[in-house]
Design a protein around this nucleic acid. Structure first.
Lengths: 328, 328
DNA sequence: CTGAAAGCGCTTACAG
DNA sequence: CTGAAAGCGCTTACAG
């Protein structure tokens, strides 16, 4: 380890410019509260010395961290990457950084530790990507008066919430398929709530079967079961493109053609959706727009304390090759 | 804003336990440098008051942040999510947090600002996911004596580096295809260097064409061109599963069957690879293992100052339906 | 083993 | 507009 400090401090900049650290600090933060002349000298000195502020010191003194906390279940969730990239960029432009934690499971010590990390780092706002986390933490967050947004379909009792678009997506998909003449539907979804959301969007009595499913294998098996039913569905709605792909594979494996015998629709417009054979009809979400909205909402809360205007996840149906008219 | 502080400080814990803040601090950090009796009182008080340490203050006083910086080009890179999730978990268990930045582009003000963020937050070690970033920053990182790892194929002049496995993957793929009798190869890769790596793994004169490609559309077009050649390849190696899928689609669109006329091999074993029709033969990387290795390496450097033992990315060939014997 | 004290690098009332 | 000073919440030599 070298003896001299690796980084230049404000004090050194101030000395080089022949001013107090107070002025140096002001020149850097509020350029208008210092004369142009001083400011010039200070900025030049900072530049020349390669000054980089120490955020920990700044946090401590200013009582704000400039950090937004993000809690995810896993970063591997489809679309999360795009959303977070957009969030990070928008926040960085406003001078905020991102701390990300990924607790294992929706409760227990790992969750607690993750929250401690975020709180201990002084996060000024939180983004909760996982509904279960949001549900678990909402009381303590409320008590702390910390602005937070859950990326979830339901509003979790009035907090900022961003709707994932699944419900509206379900409506779009159902309307489209009904128009094509389909009357027997299957639903393959991650959880029962989502499946129920789809069922709600359908006229009574038209559902052939629903299957909550956790991975591609389960989705494929679920499709298999749907095909074995006597009153087999002619259209299957999946809440992930991966499940739709698995469903297609199950059909083709049985010699059931897609879309002439069964129409299949996915969710998300993942990168592979348009390149699959048949290319997947799916619901596309503007993930980057979601990230930007998250950022804008949080910033609005932090700066004016006002909750942001409502946001409706941009979503649209992309019709490709995996859907068609109902067989007669 | 409520007047009373939202969070409990060490001083309050110390007072509640009837000890000095020095002892309280020691009880929390080095449990062995304080008597069992005091420790009991202090821990109980901390628990009772719901004490959560202020990391900014801790950073400042201890001159270490407990933070590892991660710089990515985009979080949407395949496998990065799994790698980072594993990295985060392993690091969290060791008491370290993660700061992530995503500068736009490989140089310029955005890169500078991103680095400032990481440095300013006191990152004790860095993970650079993007080769271009690593190349650009390596001099300044070296000067700062900051431990860092690049997730790149080349070692960038001796720093810690983790090989992405592409080169070894290329060898595995080539050997397999050569054994199947293929003699004319196509290569569809993100950049010329990767393509060259594949070509190196092939005996001279067996390459029909290579195409550097940036997205799925380009991959599909590249496959198209390969098919139009008079001496069309019988095997195509792609450096992403998405490109392989696009290549398959191009073939099927021309009535060229896969794998009987053309074998296609991907890279990464993305979630969709096994569900595509035909299911993709591909090279699988253990992304979580990579994340764990990154964490272990950095921790080793931080704790003992010793560079970690070499690491070879676990990679293996997964044979599925998109490859077969060369047509005669 | 324990505590009083100094100090980490900043920001921000408070005077002038 | 500018500066001297206090203080943010911790950790860590330094004495005892």
């Amino acid at each position: 380890m070298p003896d001299r400090p690796l980084s230049v401090t404000l004090r050194e900049v101030a000395r080089a410019a022949g001013v107090s650290t107070a002025s140096a600090s002001r020149a850097l933060a509020h350029s208008d509260r210092v004369s142009v002349e001083l400011r010039g000298r200070i900025l030049a000195a900072a530049e020349r010395l390669g000054y980089a502020p120490n955020f920990a010191a700044r946090s401590l003194a200013a009582r704000r961290s400039g950090l937004i906390g993000v809690m995810v279940n896993t970063l591997a969730e489809p679309h999360l990457a795009d959303t977070l990239t957009a969030l990070e960029r928008r926040l960085a432009a406003a001078g905020y950084g991102l701390v990300i934690v990924a607790p294992q499971g929706a409760s227990g010590p790992s969750l607690t530790r993750a929250l401690q990390q975020l709180l201990g780092r002084g996060a000024e706002g939180l983004v909760l990507a996982d509904t279960a986390h949001a549900r678990e933490l909402s009381p303590v967050l409320r008590a702390r008066r910390l602005p937070w947004i859950a990326m979830a379909d339901d509003a979790l009792g009035g907090e900022l919430a961003i709707d994932g678009g699944r419900r509206r997506g379900a409506e779009l998909a159902c309307r489209y398929l009904l128009d094509l003449g389909h009357r027997r539907f299957g639903v393959i979804a991650c959880d029962a709530a989502t499946a129920a959301g789809v069922v709600d969007a359908l006229p009574g009595g038209v559902v052939a079967g629903t299957a909550p499913v956790q991975d591609g294998d389960a989705a494929q098996a679920a499709m298999q079961r749907l095909l074995d039913q006597q009153d087999r569905p002619t259209a299957v709605i999946c809440d992930r493109d991966l499940y739709a792909l698995a469903a297609v594979r199950a059909c083709l494996g049985q010699g059931v053609s897609v879309p002439s015998a069964v129409s299949i629709i996915g969710f998300g417009d993942a990168d592979f959706a348009r390149r699959a054979v048949p290319a997947l009809t799916t619901l596309r979400i503007a993930s980057a727009a979601v990230g930007e909205h998250l950022a804008a909402s949080l910033l609005a809360c932090l700066e004016h304390g006002t909750p942001p205007p409502g946001f409706v996840t941009p979503i649209k149906l992309v019709v490709r090759e995996s859907t068609g008219p109902a067989p007669r």
